[in-house]
Design a binder for these strands. Structure first.
Length: 573
RNA sequence: GCGCUAGUAGCUCAGCUGGAUAGAGUAACUGACUACGAAUCAGCAGGUCGGGGGUUCGAAUCCCUUCUGGCGCACCA
Protein backbone atom coordinates (compact mmCIF):
# COMPACT_ATOMS: atom_id res chain seq x y z
CA UNK A 1 0.00 0.00 0.00
CA UNK A 2 1.20 3.47 -0.81
CA UNK A 3 1.78 5.66 2.22
CA UNK A 4 0.29 8.82 0.82
CA UNK A 5 1.32 11.03 3.69
CA UNK A 6 4.92 9.93 3.33
CA UNK A 7 4.82 10.47 -0.41
CA UNK A 8 3.42 13.94 0.06
CA UNK A 9 6.11 14.69 2.63
CA UNK A 10 8.71 13.63 0.09
CA UNK A 11 7.24 15.86 -2.58
CA UNK A 12 7.01 18.77 -0.16
CA UNK A 13 10.55 18.29 1.05
CA UNK A 14 11.79 18.95 -2.45
CA UNK A 15 10.32 22.42 -2.39
CA UNK A 16 10.88 23.31 1.26
CA UNK A 17 14.28 23.94 2.71
CA UNK A 18 15.26 23.77 6.32
CA UNK A 19 12.85 21.08 7.44
CA UNK A 20 13.44 17.35 7.45
CA UNK A 21 11.12 14.95 5.71
CA UNK A 22 9.77 13.60 8.97
CA UNK A 23 9.20 17.10 10.35
CA UNK A 24 7.20 17.89 7.25
CA UNK A 25 5.30 14.64 7.55
CA UNK A 26 4.27 15.42 11.09
CA UNK A 27 3.00 18.82 10.01
CA UNK A 28 0.73 17.45 7.29
CA UNK A 29 -2.87 17.47 8.38
CA UNK A 30 -6.09 15.87 7.32
CA UNK A 31 -8.60 18.74 7.30
CA UNK A 32 -11.82 18.20 9.19
CA UNK A 33 -13.68 19.65 6.24
CA UNK A 34 -12.92 17.80 3.02
CA UNK A 35 -13.58 21.00 1.10
CA UNK A 36 -10.16 22.06 2.38
CA UNK A 37 -8.54 19.12 0.65
CA UNK A 38 -7.63 15.55 1.45
CA UNK A 39 -4.40 16.74 2.98
CA UNK A 40 -3.30 20.19 4.04
CA UNK A 41 -0.04 21.81 4.99
CA UNK A 42 0.13 24.94 7.16
CA UNK A 43 2.94 27.33 6.29
CA UNK A 44 3.08 29.61 9.34
CA UNK A 45 6.24 28.06 10.70
CA UNK A 46 8.12 28.61 7.45
CA UNK A 47 7.62 32.35 7.57
CA UNK A 48 10.62 33.17 9.71
CA UNK A 49 13.12 31.06 7.82
CA UNK A 50 11.96 32.15 4.38
CA UNK A 51 11.24 35.72 5.45
CA UNK A 52 7.99 35.76 3.53
CA UNK A 53 4.37 35.97 4.51
CA UNK A 54 2.81 32.54 5.12
CA UNK A 55 0.07 32.95 2.47
CA UNK A 56 2.72 33.77 -0.11
CA UNK A 57 4.69 30.66 0.80
CA UNK A 58 1.56 28.55 0.61
CA UNK A 59 0.63 29.76 -2.83
CA UNK A 60 4.19 29.22 -4.08
CA UNK A 61 4.22 25.66 -2.80
CA UNK A 62 0.78 25.05 -4.25
CA UNK A 63 1.96 26.19 -7.61
CA UNK A 64 5.00 23.92 -7.55
CA UNK A 65 2.89 20.96 -6.52
CA UNK A 66 0.19 21.26 -9.14
CA UNK A 67 1.03 19.14 -12.09
CA UNK A 68 2.19 16.30 -9.86
CA UNK A 69 0.23 13.19 -10.82
CA UNK A 70 -0.55 12.37 -7.22
CA UNK A 71 -2.90 15.33 -7.01
CA UNK A 72 -5.96 16.37 -8.90
CA UNK A 73 -5.55 19.97 -7.78
CA UNK A 74 -3.49 21.87 -5.27
CA UNK A 75 -4.71 25.21 -4.01
CA UNK A 76 -3.88 27.53 -1.18
CA UNK A 77 -6.24 29.26 1.19
CA UNK A 78 -5.03 31.51 3.98
CA UNK A 79 -1.65 30.10 4.88
CA UNK A 80 -2.51 26.54 3.97
CA UNK A 81 -1.59 24.40 1.01
CA UNK A 82 -4.71 22.39 0.20
CA UNK A 83 -4.04 19.17 -1.63
CA UNK A 84 -6.75 17.25 -3.42
CA UNK A 85 -5.70 13.74 -4.33
CA UNK A 86 -6.09 12.12 -7.69
CA UNK A 87 -9.16 10.14 -6.64
CA UNK A 88 -8.86 7.28 -9.10
CA UNK A 89 -5.24 6.66 -8.26
CA UNK A 90 -5.96 6.77 -4.55
CA UNK A 91 -9.08 4.64 -4.70
CA UNK A 92 -7.32 2.04 -6.78
CA UNK A 93 -4.46 1.76 -4.32
CA UNK A 94 -6.74 1.47 -1.30
CA UNK A 95 -9.32 -0.94 -2.65
CA UNK A 96 -6.78 -3.18 -4.32
CA UNK A 97 -4.93 -3.45 -1.06
CA UNK A 98 -8.07 -4.26 0.92
CA UNK A 99 -9.16 -6.82 -1.66
CA UNK A 100 -5.79 -8.54 -1.57
CA UNK A 101 -5.32 -8.56 2.18
CA UNK A 102 -8.89 -9.52 3.09
CA UNK A 103 -9.03 -10.63 6.75
CA UNK A 104 -5.56 -9.24 7.38
CA UNK A 105 -6.43 -5.80 6.02
CA UNK A 106 -5.61 -3.25 8.67
CA UNK A 107 -2.59 -5.09 9.99
CA UNK A 108 1.03 -4.12 9.63
CA UNK A 109 3.80 -6.49 10.52
CA UNK A 110 5.44 -4.42 13.22
CA UNK A 111 5.42 -7.15 15.86
CA UNK A 112 8.01 -9.38 14.24
CA UNK A 113 7.07 -12.17 16.58
CA UNK A 114 8.23 -10.33 19.67
CA UNK A 115 6.64 -11.64 22.84
CA UNK A 116 3.87 -9.64 24.43
CA UNK A 117 2.11 -10.78 27.59
CA UNK A 118 -1.36 -9.43 28.30
CA UNK A 119 -2.67 -10.05 31.78
CA UNK A 120 -6.38 -9.38 31.98
CA UNK A 121 -9.73 -10.28 33.51
CA UNK A 122 -8.25 -11.88 36.65
CA UNK A 123 -11.41 -12.33 38.73
CA UNK A 124 -11.31 -13.48 42.31
CA UNK A 125 -12.11 -17.08 42.96
CA UNK A 126 -15.30 -17.81 44.90
CA UNK A 127 -16.69 -14.41 44.08
CA UNK A 128 -19.21 -13.37 41.46
CA UNK A 129 -18.15 -12.45 37.97
CA UNK A 130 -19.89 -9.10 37.98
CA UNK A 131 -20.30 -6.13 35.68
CA UNK A 132 -17.17 -4.51 37.13
CA UNK A 133 -15.09 -7.34 35.69
CA UNK A 134 -16.20 -6.61 32.16
CA UNK A 135 -13.68 -3.84 31.77
CA UNK A 136 -10.45 -5.71 32.28
CA UNK A 137 -11.88 -8.73 30.48
CA UNK A 138 -13.03 -6.98 27.32
CA UNK A 139 -10.36 -4.27 27.13
CA UNK A 140 -7.64 -6.83 27.78
CA UNK A 141 -9.00 -9.18 25.16
CA UNK A 142 -9.04 -6.41 22.59
CA UNK A 143 -5.48 -5.35 23.42
CA UNK A 144 -4.44 -8.96 22.96
CA UNK A 145 -6.24 -9.06 19.59
CA UNK A 146 -4.56 -5.84 18.47
CA UNK A 147 -1.07 -7.06 19.30
CA UNK A 148 -1.73 -10.45 17.80
CA UNK A 149 -3.02 -8.81 14.61
CA UNK A 150 0.14 -6.73 14.39
CA UNK A 151 2.36 -9.79 14.38
CA UNK A 152 3.37 -10.00 18.02
CA UNK A 153 3.69 -13.37 19.72
CA UNK A 154 1.07 -13.00 22.42
CA UNK A 155 0.40 -14.75 25.72
CA UNK A 156 -2.90 -14.21 27.50
CA UNK A 157 -2.73 -14.67 31.24
CA UNK A 158 -5.69 -14.81 33.57
CA UNK A 159 -4.05 -13.90 36.85
CA UNK A 160 -6.77 -15.38 39.02
CA UNK A 161 -7.22 -13.93 42.48
CA UNK A 162 -6.96 -17.33 44.04
CA UNK A 163 -4.81 -16.62 47.07
CA UNK A 164 -4.49 -14.35 50.06
CA UNK A 165 -6.19 -13.68 53.36
CA UNK A 166 -9.58 -13.70 51.68
CA UNK A 167 -9.26 -17.48 51.43
CA UNK A 168 -8.65 -17.67 55.12
CA UNK A 169 -11.93 -15.81 55.54
CA UNK A 170 -13.70 -18.02 53.06
CA UNK A 171 -12.52 -21.22 54.73
CA UNK A 172 -13.47 -19.96 58.20
CA UNK A 173 -16.89 -18.89 56.90
CA UNK A 174 -17.49 -22.19 55.12
CA UNK A 175 -16.65 -24.18 58.23
CA UNK A 176 -18.96 -22.10 60.38
CA UNK A 177 -21.98 -21.63 58.13
CA UNK A 178 -21.52 -23.59 54.91
CA UNK A 179 -22.47 -26.96 53.55
CA UNK A 180 -21.02 -29.11 50.79
CA UNK A 181 -24.42 -29.65 49.16
CA UNK A 182 -25.09 -25.94 48.83
CA UNK A 183 -21.72 -25.24 47.29
CA UNK A 184 -22.07 -28.09 44.82
CA UNK A 185 -25.47 -26.84 43.77
CA UNK A 186 -24.68 -23.14 43.43
CA UNK A 187 -20.98 -22.63 44.03
CA UNK A 188 -20.44 -18.93 43.76
CA UNK A 189 -23.76 -17.80 45.19
CA UNK A 190 -23.24 -20.03 48.23
CA UNK A 191 -19.61 -19.12 48.78
CA UNK A 192 -20.46 -15.47 48.41
CA UNK A 193 -23.22 -15.72 51.02
CA UNK A 194 -20.73 -17.18 53.51
CA UNK A 195 -18.28 -14.43 52.67
CA UNK A 196 -20.92 -11.75 53.18
CA UNK A 197 -21.91 -13.32 56.49
CA UNK A 198 -18.28 -13.37 57.56
CA UNK A 199 -18.02 -9.61 57.14
CA UNK A 200 -21.28 -9.04 58.97
CA UNK A 201 -20.18 -11.18 61.90
CA UNK A 202 -16.68 -9.77 61.92
CA UNK A 203 -18.04 -6.33 62.76
CA UNK A 204 -19.17 -7.59 66.15
CA UNK A 205 -16.41 -10.19 66.49
CA UNK A 206 -13.16 -8.82 65.15
CA UNK A 207 -11.35 -11.93 66.36
CA UNK A 208 -12.73 -13.64 63.25
CA UNK A 209 -10.26 -11.63 61.21
CA UNK A 210 -7.36 -13.03 63.23
CA UNK A 211 -8.74 -16.51 62.78
CA UNK A 212 -8.92 -15.98 59.03
CA UNK A 213 -5.34 -14.73 58.88
CA UNK A 214 -4.20 -17.77 60.83
CA UNK A 215 -6.03 -20.12 58.49
CA UNK A 216 -4.45 -18.45 55.46
CA UNK A 217 -1.02 -18.83 57.02
CA UNK A 218 -1.81 -22.53 57.44
CA UNK A 219 -2.80 -22.74 53.80
CA UNK A 220 0.39 -21.01 52.80
CA UNK A 221 2.37 -23.46 54.91
CA UNK A 222 0.83 -26.36 53.04
CA UNK A 223 -1.74 -27.66 55.48
CA UNK A 224 -3.59 -30.52 53.76
CA UNK A 225 -7.11 -29.83 54.95
CA UNK A 226 -7.07 -26.15 54.00
CA UNK A 227 -5.45 -26.94 50.69
CA UNK A 228 -8.22 -29.39 49.74
CA UNK A 229 -10.91 -26.84 50.48
CA UNK A 230 -9.07 -24.13 48.59
CA UNK A 231 -8.60 -26.41 45.58
CA UNK A 232 -12.27 -27.29 45.57
CA UNK A 233 -13.36 -23.64 45.74
CA UNK A 234 -11.04 -22.87 42.87
CA UNK A 235 -12.36 -25.64 40.65
CA UNK A 236 -16.05 -24.87 41.09
CA UNK A 237 -15.40 -21.16 40.57
CA UNK A 238 -13.47 -21.70 37.36
CA UNK A 239 -16.35 -23.74 35.99
CA UNK A 240 -18.68 -20.82 36.50
CA UNK A 241 -16.22 -18.31 35.05
CA UNK A 242 -15.67 -20.33 31.91
CA UNK A 243 -19.37 -20.14 31.19
CA UNK A 244 -19.03 -16.35 30.92
CA UNK A 245 -15.79 -16.57 28.93
CA UNK A 246 -17.53 -18.88 26.47
CA UNK A 247 -20.34 -16.40 26.02
CA UNK A 248 -17.83 -13.64 25.38
CA UNK A 249 -15.70 -15.81 23.11
CA UNK A 250 -12.62 -15.27 25.22
CA UNK A 251 -9.76 -17.71 25.83
CA UNK A 252 -6.57 -17.65 27.83
CA UNK A 253 -3.19 -19.27 27.37
CA UNK A 254 -2.57 -19.48 31.10
CA UNK A 255 -4.61 -19.48 34.26
CA UNK A 256 -1.58 -19.12 36.49
CA UNK A 257 -3.08 -17.02 39.26
CA UNK A 258 -1.62 -15.70 42.46
CA UNK A 259 -1.36 -19.14 44.05
CA UNK A 260 0.89 -20.26 41.22
CA UNK A 261 3.64 -18.01 42.57
CA UNK A 262 3.37 -19.08 46.20
CA UNK A 263 6.52 -21.20 45.95
CA UNK A 264 8.43 -18.49 44.09
CA UNK A 265 8.26 -15.88 46.82
CA UNK A 266 11.26 -16.98 48.88
CA UNK A 267 13.52 -16.31 45.97
CA UNK A 268 12.21 -12.76 45.64
CA UNK A 269 12.65 -12.15 49.35
CA UNK A 270 16.20 -13.52 49.16
CA UNK A 271 17.09 -11.17 46.33
CA UNK A 272 15.56 -8.22 48.17
CA UNK A 273 17.64 -9.09 51.23
CA UNK A 274 20.75 -9.58 49.15
CA UNK A 275 20.35 -6.15 47.59
CA UNK A 276 19.73 -4.63 51.01
CA UNK A 277 16.34 -3.38 49.96
CA UNK A 278 14.35 -5.07 52.69
CA UNK A 279 14.05 -3.28 55.99
CA UNK A 280 12.11 -4.12 59.15
CA UNK A 281 9.40 -1.69 60.12
CA UNK A 282 6.75 -2.13 62.80
CA UNK A 283 7.44 -5.84 62.77
CA UNK A 284 6.89 -6.16 59.03
CA UNK A 285 9.33 -6.27 56.13
CA UNK A 286 9.16 -3.37 53.72
CA UNK A 287 10.99 -1.73 50.84
CA UNK A 288 11.34 1.96 51.59
CA UNK A 289 10.26 4.09 48.64
CA UNK A 290 10.32 7.47 50.31
CA UNK A 291 13.03 8.65 47.94
CA UNK A 292 10.56 8.17 45.12
CA UNK A 293 7.75 9.98 46.87
CA UNK A 294 5.80 6.81 47.49
CA UNK A 295 4.64 4.98 50.60
CA UNK A 296 6.64 1.87 51.49
CA UNK A 297 6.01 -1.43 49.72
CA UNK A 298 4.90 -3.95 52.30
CA UNK A 299 6.53 -7.23 51.35
CA UNK A 300 5.91 -9.41 54.39
CA UNK A 301 3.41 -9.07 57.19
CA UNK A 302 4.19 -9.33 60.90
CA UNK A 303 3.01 -12.93 60.95
CA UNK A 304 5.41 -13.79 58.13
CA UNK A 305 2.79 -14.28 55.42
CA UNK A 306 3.02 -12.40 52.16
CA UNK A 307 0.95 -9.84 50.32
CA UNK A 308 -0.05 -9.49 46.74
CA UNK A 309 2.73 -7.06 45.94
CA UNK A 310 5.19 -9.84 46.71
CA UNK A 311 3.32 -12.16 44.40
CA UNK A 312 3.25 -9.56 41.62
CA UNK A 313 7.00 -9.13 41.88
CA UNK A 314 7.50 -12.89 41.81
CA UNK A 315 5.13 -13.18 38.85
CA UNK A 316 7.01 -10.55 36.85
CA UNK A 317 10.37 -12.23 37.52
CA UNK A 318 8.92 -15.62 36.59
CA UNK A 319 7.42 -14.24 33.38
CA UNK A 320 10.66 -12.62 32.32
CA UNK A 321 12.50 -15.89 32.83
CA UNK A 322 9.82 -18.00 31.20
CA UNK A 323 8.74 -15.84 28.27
CA UNK A 324 11.50 -13.24 27.93
CA UNK A 325 8.81 -10.71 27.08
CA UNK A 326 9.18 -7.57 25.01
CA UNK A 327 6.16 -6.13 26.82
CA UNK A 328 4.37 -7.32 29.92
CA UNK A 329 0.99 -5.62 29.96
CA UNK A 330 -1.37 -5.49 32.95
CA UNK A 331 -4.97 -4.49 32.32
CA UNK A 332 -5.98 -3.60 35.85
CA UNK A 333 -8.24 -0.91 37.36
CA UNK A 334 -6.82 2.57 38.00
CA UNK A 335 -7.51 2.07 41.70
CA UNK A 336 -4.29 0.07 41.67
CA UNK A 337 -2.12 2.77 40.12
CA UNK A 338 -0.04 3.20 43.22
CA UNK A 339 0.38 -0.53 43.67
CA UNK A 340 1.81 -0.85 40.16
CA UNK A 341 4.08 2.15 40.53
CA UNK A 342 5.38 0.64 43.72
CA UNK A 343 6.21 -2.85 42.57
CA UNK A 344 7.55 -1.76 39.20
CA UNK A 345 9.88 0.56 41.13
CA UNK A 346 10.91 -2.34 43.36
CA UNK A 347 11.71 -4.39 40.25
CA UNK A 348 13.85 -1.52 39.02
CA UNK A 349 15.64 -1.27 42.37
CA UNK A 350 16.34 -4.99 42.20
CA UNK A 351 18.43 -4.13 39.16
CA UNK A 352 16.13 -5.46 36.46
CA UNK A 353 16.40 -3.16 33.48
CA UNK A 354 13.23 -4.69 32.04
CA UNK A 355 11.10 -2.93 34.63
CA UNK A 356 10.05 -0.41 32.01
CA UNK A 357 8.70 -3.22 29.88
CA UNK A 358 6.09 -3.86 32.55
CA UNK A 359 3.17 -1.67 31.65
CA UNK A 360 0.10 -0.99 33.72
CA UNK A 361 -2.95 -0.16 31.61
CA UNK A 362 -5.51 1.37 33.97
CA UNK A 363 -9.21 1.90 33.45
CA UNK A 364 -11.92 3.78 35.32
CA UNK A 365 -14.47 2.68 37.85
CA UNK A 366 -17.91 1.22 37.17
CA UNK A 367 -20.52 2.24 39.69
CA UNK A 368 -24.17 1.34 40.03
CA UNK A 369 -27.02 3.78 39.68
CA UNK A 370 -27.74 6.18 42.54
CA UNK A 371 -24.01 6.45 43.01
CA UNK A 372 -23.81 3.13 44.81
CA UNK A 373 -20.48 1.44 44.48
CA UNK A 374 -20.36 -2.23 43.74
CA UNK A 375 -19.51 -4.24 46.81
CA UNK A 376 -18.87 -7.93 46.83
CA UNK A 377 -18.68 -7.99 50.59
CA UNK A 378 -22.15 -6.53 50.85
CA UNK A 379 -23.40 -8.78 48.09
CA UNK A 380 -24.34 -5.76 46.03
CA UNK A 381 -23.48 -6.69 42.46
CA UNK A 382 -24.86 -6.95 38.93
CA UNK A 383 -23.88 -10.31 37.46
CA UNK A 384 -22.15 -10.10 34.11
CA UNK A 385 -23.86 -13.27 33.00
CA UNK A 386 -27.24 -11.68 33.61
CA UNK A 387 -26.27 -8.61 31.59
CA UNK A 388 -25.20 -10.78 28.68
CA UNK A 389 -28.30 -12.96 28.90
CA UNK A 390 -30.67 -10.01 28.93
CA UNK A 391 -28.90 -8.43 25.96
CA UNK A 392 -29.26 -11.69 24.03
CA UNK A 393 -32.95 -12.00 24.97
CA UNK A 394 -33.68 -8.50 23.85
CA UNK A 395 -31.91 -9.07 20.56
CA UNK A 396 -33.99 -12.16 19.95
CA UNK A 397 -37.16 -10.12 20.52
CA UNK A 398 -36.03 -7.45 18.09
CA UNK A 399 -35.17 -10.01 15.42
CA UNK A 400 -38.61 -11.60 15.76
CA UNK A 401 -40.27 -8.20 15.66
CA UNK A 402 -38.40 -7.22 12.51
CA UNK A 403 -39.23 -10.54 11.01
CA UNK A 404 -35.77 -11.00 9.58
CA UNK A 405 -35.33 -13.90 7.25
CA UNK A 406 -32.57 -15.67 9.12
CA UNK A 407 -32.28 -19.32 10.03
CA UNK A 408 -30.03 -19.13 13.05
CA UNK A 409 -31.87 -16.71 15.27
CA UNK A 410 -30.24 -18.06 18.42
CA UNK A 411 -26.71 -17.73 17.09
CA UNK A 412 -27.35 -14.26 15.72
CA UNK A 413 -29.02 -13.09 18.92
CA UNK A 414 -25.93 -14.14 20.80
CA UNK A 415 -23.56 -12.45 18.37
CA UNK A 416 -25.49 -9.21 18.37
CA UNK A 417 -26.59 -9.10 22.01
CA UNK A 418 -23.20 -9.91 23.46
CA UNK A 419 -21.57 -7.77 20.81
CA UNK A 420 -23.67 -4.84 21.97
CA UNK A 421 -22.31 -5.20 25.50
CA UNK A 422 -18.71 -5.53 24.34
CA UNK A 423 -19.03 -2.60 21.95
CA UNK A 424 -20.54 -0.37 24.59
CA UNK A 425 -17.66 -1.18 26.89
CA UNK A 426 -15.09 -0.37 24.22
CA UNK A 427 -16.74 2.81 22.96
CA UNK A 428 -15.30 5.28 25.42
CA UNK A 429 -11.78 5.93 26.54
CA UNK A 430 -10.90 3.31 29.11
CA UNK A 431 -9.87 5.80 31.77
CA UNK A 432 -13.40 7.19 32.10
CA UNK A 433 -15.52 6.22 35.09
CA UNK A 434 -19.08 5.33 34.26
CA UNK A 435 -22.33 4.35 35.86
CA UNK A 436 -23.85 1.08 34.83
CA UNK A 437 -27.33 1.48 33.35
CA UNK A 438 -29.66 -1.15 31.93
CA UNK A 439 -31.20 1.43 29.58
CA UNK A 440 -27.89 2.31 28.12
CA UNK A 441 -26.54 -1.17 27.73
CA UNK A 442 -29.75 -2.37 26.07
CA UNK A 443 -29.94 0.55 23.65
CA UNK A 444 -29.25 -0.62 20.11
CA UNK A 445 -29.59 2.62 18.20
CA UNK A 446 -27.02 5.20 17.20
CA UNK A 447 -23.33 4.58 17.80
CA UNK A 448 -23.74 1.02 19.01
CA UNK A 449 -22.52 -2.46 18.22
CA UNK A 450 -25.76 -3.46 16.52
CA UNK A 451 -25.51 -0.39 14.30
CA UNK A 452 -22.08 -1.40 13.05
CA UNK A 453 -23.08 -5.05 12.73
CA UNK A 454 -26.24 -4.04 10.91
CA UNK A 455 -24.17 -2.06 8.44
CA UNK A 456 -21.99 -5.11 7.92
CA UNK A 457 -25.05 -7.32 7.39
CA UNK A 458 -26.46 -4.80 4.96
CA UNK A 459 -23.24 -4.73 2.95
CA UNK A 460 -23.22 -8.52 3.01
CA UNK A 461 -26.77 -8.51 1.73
CA UNK A 462 -25.85 -6.29 -1.20
CA UNK A 463 -22.99 -8.58 -2.11
CA UNK A 464 -25.28 -11.60 -1.87
CA UNK A 465 -27.81 -9.96 -4.15
CA UNK A 466 -25.19 -9.12 -6.75
CA UNK A 467 -24.66 -11.71 -9.40
CA UNK A 468 -20.92 -11.00 -9.29
CA UNK A 469 -18.55 -13.46 -7.70
CA UNK A 470 -16.79 -11.42 -5.05
CA UNK A 471 -14.85 -14.43 -3.82
CA UNK A 472 -11.81 -13.44 -5.81
CA UNK A 473 -11.94 -9.78 -4.95
CA UNK A 474 -8.24 -9.30 -5.60
CA UNK A 475 -8.71 -10.39 -9.22
CA UNK A 476 -11.75 -8.19 -9.54
CA UNK A 477 -9.75 -5.20 -8.36
CA UNK A 478 -7.44 -5.58 -11.37
CA UNK A 479 -10.14 -4.83 -13.90
CA UNK A 480 -12.25 -2.25 -12.13
CA UNK A 481 -12.84 1.21 -13.55
CA UNK A 482 -12.24 3.41 -10.53
CA UNK A 483 -13.76 6.49 -12.12
CA UNK A 484 -17.11 5.23 -10.87
CA UNK A 485 -15.99 5.72 -7.28
CA UNK A 486 -15.17 9.40 -7.31
CA UNK A 487 -18.50 10.63 -5.89
CA UNK A 488 -18.33 12.49 -2.60
CA UNK A 489 -19.70 9.78 -0.33
CA UNK A 490 -17.84 6.97 -2.10
CA UNK A 491 -14.56 8.83 -1.77
CA UNK A 492 -15.19 9.72 1.87
CA UNK A 493 -15.73 6.02 2.57
CA UNK A 494 -12.56 5.05 0.73
CA UNK A 495 -10.54 7.53 2.75
CA UNK A 496 -11.75 5.98 5.99
CA UNK A 497 -10.96 2.48 4.76
CA UNK A 498 -7.48 3.73 3.89
CA UNK A 499 -6.90 4.89 7.44
CA UNK A 500 -7.73 1.59 9.13
CA UNK A 501 -4.09 0.40 9.36
CA UNK A 502 -2.87 3.58 11.04
CA UNK A 503 -5.85 3.52 13.37
CA UNK A 504 -5.02 -0.05 14.42
CA UNK A 505 -1.41 0.90 15.05
CA UNK A 506 -2.42 3.87 17.16
CA UNK A 507 -4.89 1.80 19.16
CA UNK A 508 -2.15 -0.70 19.98
CA UNK A 509 0.41 1.96 20.82
CA UNK A 510 -1.99 3.73 23.13
CA UNK A 511 -3.55 0.52 24.44
CA UNK A 512 -6.88 2.06 23.55
CA UNK A 513 -9.40 -0.18 21.76
CA UNK A 514 -11.95 2.66 21.62
CA UNK A 515 -9.90 4.19 18.80
CA UNK A 516 -10.85 1.18 16.66
CA UNK A 517 -14.44 1.32 17.89
CA UNK A 518 -14.77 4.95 16.87
CA UNK A 519 -13.24 4.34 13.50
CA UNK A 520 -15.52 1.50 12.51
CA UNK A 521 -18.48 3.63 13.55
CA UNK A 522 -17.12 6.25 11.14
CA UNK A 523 -16.76 3.65 8.41
CA UNK A 524 -20.30 2.41 9.04
CA UNK A 525 -21.69 5.95 8.88
CA UNK A 526 -19.80 6.64 5.67
CA UNK A 527 -21.03 3.37 4.21
CA UNK A 528 -24.66 4.13 5.05
CA UNK A 529 -24.35 7.56 3.53
CA UNK A 530 -22.90 6.09 0.36
CA UNK A 531 -25.65 3.47 0.35
CA UNK A 532 -28.33 6.15 0.47
CA UNK A 533 -26.63 8.50 -1.97
CA UNK A 534 -25.90 6.01 -4.69
CA UNK A 535 -27.56 2.99 -6.15
CA UNK A 536 -25.12 0.10 -6.09
CA UNK A 537 -26.74 -2.68 -8.09
CA UNK A 538 -27.04 -0.69 -11.29
CA UNK A 539 -27.45 -2.15 -14.77
CA UNK A 540 -24.08 -1.04 -16.11
CA UNK A 541 -21.83 -4.02 -15.25
CA UNK A 542 -18.68 -1.90 -15.04
CA UNK A 543 -20.18 0.59 -12.64
CA UNK A 544 -21.75 -2.19 -10.59
CA UNK A 545 -18.42 -4.01 -10.34
CA UNK A 546 -16.61 -0.93 -9.13
CA UNK A 547 -19.21 -0.20 -6.48
CA UNK A 548 -19.28 -3.78 -5.31
CA UNK A 549 -15.55 -3.66 -4.79
CA UNK A 550 -16.00 -0.66 -2.53
CA UNK A 551 -18.82 -2.41 -0.66
CA UNK A 552 -16.58 -5.42 -0.25
CA UNK A 553 -13.69 -3.35 1.12
CA UNK A 554 -16.00 -1.55 3.55
CA UNK A 555 -17.52 -4.81 4.76
CA UNK A 556 -14.09 -6.36 5.24
CA UNK A 557 -12.81 -3.30 7.13
CA UNK A 558 -15.80 -3.37 9.47
CA UNK A 559 -15.44 -7.10 9.99
CA UNK A 560 -11.74 -6.84 10.78
CA UNK A 561 -12.40 -3.96 13.14
CA UNK A 562 -15.13 -5.85 14.97
CA UNK A 563 -12.85 -8.84 15.26
CA UNK A 564 -10.24 -6.66 16.96
CA UNK A 565 -12.85 -5.77 19.55
CA UNK A 566 -13.64 -9.44 20.05
CA UNK A 567 -16.94 -9.26 18.18
CA UNK A 568 -18.61 -11.33 15.49
CA UNK A 569 -19.79 -9.89 12.18
CA UNK A 570 -23.00 -11.71 11.23
CA UNK A 571 -23.94 -11.87 7.54
CA UNK A 572 -27.60 -11.47 8.44
CA UNK A 573 -29.34 -10.07 11.48
C1' G B 1 -2.96 16.61 53.99
C1' C B 2 -0.17 14.21 49.80
C1' G B 3 -0.42 11.60 45.03
C1' C B 4 -3.01 9.98 40.53
C1' U B 5 -7.11 11.03 37.40
C1' A B 6 -11.32 13.37 35.05
C1' G B 7 -14.21 18.14 33.93
C1' U B 8 -16.24 19.88 26.20
C1' A B 9 -24.02 20.70 23.67
C1' G B 10 -29.89 18.97 28.25
C1' C B 11 -27.55 13.71 28.60
C1' U B 12 -23.35 10.11 26.98
C1' C B 13 -18.85 11.14 24.83
C1' A B 14 -14.84 12.20 20.45
C1' G B 15 -11.17 15.80 19.51
C1' C B 16 -5.73 16.80 23.72
C1' U B 17 2.41 14.99 20.40
C1' G B 18 -0.91 23.39 19.24
C1' G B 19 -3.64 24.94 13.33
C1' A B 20 -8.82 26.88 9.32
C1' U B 21 -15.99 27.78 11.40
C1' A B 22 -14.93 22.73 18.39
C1' G B 23 -17.55 17.23 16.16
C1' A B 24 -20.69 12.57 16.84
C1' G B 25 -24.56 9.92 19.20
C1' U B 26 -28.83 10.62 22.23
C1' A B 27 -33.29 13.29 23.75
C1' A B 28 -37.03 17.21 21.23
C1' C B 29 -38.96 18.74 16.48
C1' U B 30 -39.35 17.93 10.77
C1' G B 31 -38.88 14.87 6.50
C1' A B 32 -37.51 10.06 3.52
C1' C B 33 -39.34 2.90 2.79
C1' U B 34 -43.48 0.38 -5.13
C1' A B 35 -34.33 0.44 -6.37
C1' C B 36 -29.75 -2.96 -3.35
C1' G B 37 -32.22 -4.50 4.60
C1' A B 38 -35.74 2.04 7.99
C1' A B 39 -31.38 -1.62 14.00
C1' U B 40 -31.09 3.25 8.29
C1' C B 41 -30.62 8.28 6.09
C1' A B 42 -31.41 13.71 5.71
C1' G B 43 -32.77 18.39 8.09
C1' C B 44 -33.46 21.74 12.38
C1' A B 45 -31.89 23.15 17.07
C1' G B 46 -28.42 22.84 20.89
C1' G B 47 -21.38 25.52 23.29
C1' U B 48 -18.44 31.12 28.76
C1' C B 49 -14.39 23.62 25.91
C1' G B 50 -15.15 24.18 34.87
C1' G B 51 -12.93 29.51 36.30
C1' G B 52 -8.58 32.82 36.04
C1' G B 53 -3.69 33.98 34.26
C1' G B 54 0.51 32.92 30.86
C1' U B 55 3.41 31.11 26.28
C1' U B 56 2.36 31.56 20.79
C1' C B 57 1.19 34.30 14.38
C1' G B 58 -2.52 30.66 16.45
C1' A B 59 -4.76 27.20 22.67
C1' A B 60 -10.24 22.63 24.07
C1' U B 61 -5.01 20.96 23.30
C1' C B 62 1.18 23.34 26.31
C1' C B 63 2.63 25.93 31.35
C1' C B 64 0.98 28.10 36.17
C1' U B 65 -3.06 28.75 39.50
C1' U B 66 -7.85 27.75 41.35
C1' C B 67 -12.71 25.13 41.83
C1' U B 68 -15.53 20.48 41.48
C1' G B 69 -16.00 15.04 41.13
C1' G B 70 -13.61 10.04 41.30
C1' C B 71 -9.67 6.86 43.05
C1' G B 72 -5.50 5.76 46.16
C1' C B 73 -2.17 6.53 50.44
C1' A B 74 1.16 -0.41 55.78
C1' C B 75 -0.16 -5.76 57.34
C1' C B 76 -7.14 -6.79 51.88
C1' A B 77 -6.64 -7.75 46.63
Amino acid sequence: MIDFKKDIALILSETIEGLTKSEIESMIEIPGDSKMGDYAFPCFRLAKALRKAPPVIASEIAEKLSGNGLFATVTSVNAYVNMFLNKELFTKAVLTDAAEMKETYGSTNVGQNRKVIVEFSSPNIAKPFHIGHIRSTVIGNSIYKLYHFLGYDTVRINHLGDYGTQFGKMIVAYRKWGSREEVEKEPIKSLLSYYVKFHEEAEAHPELEDEARAVFTQLENGSREEYELWKWFREVSLMEFSRVYDMLGIDFDSYAGESFYSDKLCKVIDILKEKNLLVASEGAQIVDLEAYNMPPALIMKQDGSTLYITRDIAAAVYRKETYDFYKNIYVVASQQNLHFQQWIKVIELMGYDWSKQCIHIPFGLVSLEEGAIMSTRKGKVVYLEEVLRRAVDQTRDIIREKNVNAEDVDIISKQVGIGAVIFQELSNGRIKDYTFSWDKILNFEGETGPYVQYTHARASSVLRNAAVDIGKAELMAQEVDFSFLTGESAFALTKLIYRLPEVVLEAAERYEPSIVTRHIVDIAQAFNRFYHDEHILVDDPKEKKAKLLLVYAAKQSIKNGLSLLGMEAPEKM
